[in-house]
Write a protein that binds this DNA or RNA. Structure first.
Length: 488
RNA sequence: GGUCCUGUGGCCGAGUGGCUAGGCAGUGGUCUGCAAAACCAUCUACAGCGGUUCGAAUCCGCUCGGGACCUCCA
């Protein structure tokens, strides 16, 4: 079953059977956030998608080294000579040290990812912690004649590289088209070609973040850190490199060119790209302001939402779409997912209480294979979830005595569903009744209401229910007594 | 302008040649003092036009619409 996993590889444009370089081990690198402002939900979607991928690889029994960087060195705002890096710009705006900005938003990022129940990566290296490695790579590429110094900065020579390699294979671009597409750019006198990209940049006097190098007091180019850190922790060749679609070009294309120039081999076997989370049909973006922050989603403190949603609901919402599809964010869609999420979790909970019979009337083995068939087909979580809902229907039928399961089947279903729902999809129960004092108080109130109902004093019993509902506590009369829950 | 992706029922969202996706909403039912919830059942699709094929949502062409990238962005 393990060897059936197929992954869509951006490099070939096809789903390929996944074969790791080392048996039962996987090296995976994912481009992490630039920590100069709060991560928005779109950023989170990518990291949640790769969290699911990481979790599924672990579930299949792979030993995974998952490396996700923190970009804290700051990128150029543009490629012109007077560019200012984003982190120092933000530092000026907030009157903080650059590293203070980095610390603040890194902490914030970790807190948000924890709320989404994302596992931390195995290694989370920072760009500023790998300046030496980056300088070494620049030097080596210069030695090989594929980069040149110009006025204290170093640029990668794309056209020379292209003579013996294919620049643009990942993003399916031809170098001629790229050149013709950059016709009207000026102010790039330092570069031999507009396609060339910076490996090292000389710092302007106003630039705060700077390090000594053989070429100038400066800072590394935008694409270099990922090459340095993936090479250091995963080797010259590793299994999976991931990131958002928007990084495909130029970021990942440049990474391939750099790494291949540096080591002589193609760095990555499987390139994976997650699609955008859109808002109002457009990609979420920090620069355009078309975005939503996780905390706004959780609290509902935004004009976009009538109420807040629990992180687990948001995670489930994302899992209901395939990672390579665009997903549009809306209140209606979230609301639908919230109901579905509770239905699924109730089913998983009910599974624990089912009784068994001699024989099954349901094809549990077939159902379980359908779970894995979905996941092995390029991590198709929406189909997995559809199949999990089939399982919920069966669970309900067994509960009603309309179907039966053997002991073996029940145990199989239980362990598989728990593994997929909790370990792979990374969902969790939303625990709202952990306040023991509230629970005690509710016990008393419901006891009083029960007395009223037994005396057919509907006026009192309905008053209690309605007032509690107004206070955000839903009371539901069931066959086996009354239950209550705090509205999320 | 160039490269690539995409258009599914009221909404979200799977599905790449023939067989019920699924969730939400709607409708009918079960349960209930009522309500809510829950459960069961069920209706509404494949942007348009043309082509290939015994057969297409699925392949090809054209038209129209949406998006991503080409500048930092998950």
């Amino acid at each position: 079953m393990q060897n059936q996993l197929k992954i869509y590889n951006t490099l070939t444009g096809e789903k390929e059977v996944f074969q790791s370089i080392l048996e039962n081990q996987v090296g995976m690198y994912v481009c992490g956030p630039t920590v100069y402002s709060d991560v928005h939900l779109g950023n989170c979607r990518t990291f949640i998608s790769f969290d699911m991928i990481y979790r599924y690889l672990l579930h299949l029994g792979y030993k995974v080294r998952y490396v996700r960087n923190i970009t804290d060195a700051g990128h150029l705002e543009n490629d012109a000579d007077e560019g200012e890096d984003k982190i120092s710009k933000k530092a000026r705006l907030e009157s903080l040290e650059p590293m203070e900005i980095v610390q603040k938003y890194t902490t914030g990022f970790h807190e948000i990812m924890a709320k989404f129940n994302a596992l931390p990566p195995s290694i989370e290296p920072t760009a500023t912690g790998h300046i030496i490695e980056q300088i070494e790579i620049v030097q080596e590429i210069i030695n090989k004649g594929l980069a040149y110094e110009s006025n204290g900065s170093v640029y990668f020579d794309v056209e020379t590289y292209n003579q013996e390699n294919d620049y643009g294979t990942l993003s399916k671009r031809k170098i001629e088209d790229l050149i013709s597409g950059t016709r009207d750019l000026d102010g790039q006198s330092e570069k031999r070609s507009p396609l060339d990209f910076a490996l090292w940049k000389k710092a302007s006097p106003s630039h705060i973040m700077r390090w000594p190098s053989p070429w100038s007091l400066g800072f590394p180019g935008w694409h270099l850190e990922c090459t340095a850190m993936s090479h250091k922790y995963l080797g010259a060749q590793f299994d999976i490199h991931g990131g958002g679609m928007d990084l495909k070009f130029p970021h990942h294309e440049c990474e391939i060119a750099q790494a291949k120039s540096f080591t002589g081999t193609n760095p990555v076997n499987y390139w994976m790209h997650t699609n955008m989370l859109t808002l109002n049909g457009k990609k979420m973006s920090k620069s355009t302001g078309n975005n939503l922050l996780p905390d706004e989603l959780f609290s509902g403190d935004t004009t976009l939402l009538e109420k807040g949603f629990h992180p687990m609901v948001a995670r489930f919402f994302m899992m209901q779409a395939h990672y390579r599809s665009e997903l549009d964010f809306s209140f209606e869609a979230l609301t639908a997912s919230e109901k579905g999420f509770h239905k699924l979790m109730q089913g998983v909970k009910d599974l624990e209480l089912l009784s068994t019979k001699e024989a099954s009337t349901e094809d549990v083995d077939g159902l379980i294979s359908s779970f894995y068939a979905a996941m092995n087909d390029d991590f198709n979580t929406p189909v997995l979830i559809a199949q999990l809902f089939e399982a919920v229907t069966i669970i309900n039928k067994v509960k009603d005595g309309k179907s039966s399961l053997s002991k073996d089947d029940l145990n199989n279903l239980k362990s598989t569903m728990n593994a997929l729902v909790f370990d792979v999809l990374g969902l969790n129960y939303i625990d709202v009744s952990d306040d023991s004092k509230l629970s005690s108080a509710m016990e008393i109130i419901l006891e009083l209401r029960k007395n009223a109902r037994e005396n057919k004093n509907w006026e009192i019993s309905d008053l209690i229910r309605d007032k509690l509902n107004e206070a955000g506590i839903a009371v539901k009369d069931g066959k086996d007594g009354t239950s209550w829950s705090v509205n999320s």
